[in-house]
Design a protein around this nucleic acid. Structure first.
Lengths: 257, 257
DNA sequence: CCTTGACCTTTACGTTGCGTAAAGGTCTAT
DNA sequence: ATAGACCTTTACGCAACGTAAAGGTCAAGG
């Protein structure tokens, strides 16, 4: 009834590394070390490991588990109760987050994009308040009320028109991409137009544009399945086609990052 | 309307380190770097940070946030939906764990200690099965059926009597500790008896005993508020008194770990 | 002009619970 | 004797920063 690490690992369902780690932190030490330096576990260790894994399932930290099993007078019931409180808090937080995510999805689908303003109201108010508090008077006296108010106004809202224009351009790109893809040549005028419009479209949201960033993004489209799924809605392989078009447009060779 | 790191940190409620980190991973770069190497953030960065913090609240990973904000064509709705699925899974798991913790507390309070056997049934069956599978025949033929069965039996349960004896001793210790504490001298015979019994009591559950471990544990009693709360039920300061008694008993000076 | 103190910078280690090499001994079987 | 399956230790990597440490910068005051 003696086991080496991986034997014990196998019957308990954890990895050998895990057992070595538990040894390292003094959570579960082997019964003995044999002449070759191998860890040898006995029955007692099997029982202990079983306890450990049980508590681990309950998401108790290894440090706390250590106390619970190495010290029986440790008030396990109390520890579990406070642990339960922790879990309850976690769940309450999760509930809030989920509701928030749901709302966000609904608002995005409801065609109210960029209307996160409300959610950030507190944040922005905080910011504006800070501005007023710290610089309000100086700035108002230096630049006049209008500058301040205009700045705050810009801060509160983003341009709806720009957003709409950007969206329209995005849709146009998808249509043109389909045409270009059917034609088949990423160097064609049509495909190069798509690349150019893609750049234009990007610049709506990018604070600074560079060929490198654009090329990197094109590579990311292919690498990240979520982008691939998006552009491949046009047709399978459209994502790579778009990337190739962009790279040609930028006059950049394929990289290997 | 320009901010250095800590200014921005202050109005946004995050730390300066966080902003530097976001710069480092390319999530939020400052508008510019001034001649002294200071990071200078502008309005656009404030808006971006606000977006980032919003998604961070939703427990979206920074990597995903990066994609969502650096690439507007990234299908945020889809991303949020799958993120929602993740959260739902997390919550379902939490629910299970909480139910399990609750059951465990109930069973402990119901005076069915160490009756985790049922919960570990699968684990142990797995182990026994392994034993039977791999060694069953050889061992049975070598040592006879009884050895195997006895071993399995021991594996399935721990001694109830030992557990009870240990508990009794634990209670006795508490009573004696109170007396000794009132007397006031950790070097007194009474206090030294408590320490001796504490050692005895420990050995019920410790596979190996050492003075160092015992002393370390005594120090932990004082360091960990949960132990302190437990022993201080006797009287305020009883935990430290117990530690002092044990250290004297062991003939060990106070350490500084 | 110099110092003080409040800023800023980069570098780098610690956190939790392991996964994953890498480089090397041991054991068993052929 | 050599291969293959074990075992060992050392050490970097992960997420998202917290927290020194060691050192420039800048405005104010003596």
């Amino acid at each position: 009834m003696e086991y080496t690490v991986n034997k014990l690992a196998q019957i308990s369902g954890v990895s050998g590394r895990t057992l070595r780690y538990y040894d390292q932190i003094g959570l579960l030490e082997p019964a003995r070390i044999n002449s070759s330096g191998y860890r040898i576990y006995g029955q007692k260790e099997v029982d202990l490991l079983q306890q450990i894994l049980f508590y681990r399932e309950l998401e108790v930290s290894l440090e706390d588990i250590k106390k619970m099993i190495s010290e029986p007078m440790f008030d396990q019931t109390e520890a579990l109760k406070s642990h339960y409180q922790l879990l309850a808090q976690k769940r309450a937080r999760l509930d809030k987050i989920m509701a928030n995510v749901k709302r966000t999805i609904a608002s995005k689908q409801g065609g109210i994009p960029m209307q996160d303003k409300d959610k950030f109201a507190a944040f922005k108010d905080n910011l504006i308040e800070e501005n007023e508090d710290k610089y309000g008077e100086e700035i108002r006296s230096k630049y006049g009320d209008k500058t301040v108010d205009a700045s705050n106004a810009k801060l509160r809202g983003m341009s709806e028109e720009d957003f709409k224009a950007m969206n329209d351009l995005g849709e146009e790109i998808m249509v043109l991409l389909e045409k270009a893809y059917i034609a088949g040549d990423p160097a064609s005028d049509l495909a190069q137009d798509v690349a150019a419009k893609h750049k234009q479209w990007l610049m709506y949201s990018w604070s600074s544009y560079s060929k490198e960033a654009h090329a990197g993004l094109a590579e990311m489209y292919v690498a990240d399945e979520r982008f691939t799924a998006f552009y491949d809605k046009v047709a399978e392989g459209a994502t790579e086609f778009l990337r190739d078009s962009i790279l040609i447009y930028l006059g950049i060779e394929k990289q290997d990052s």
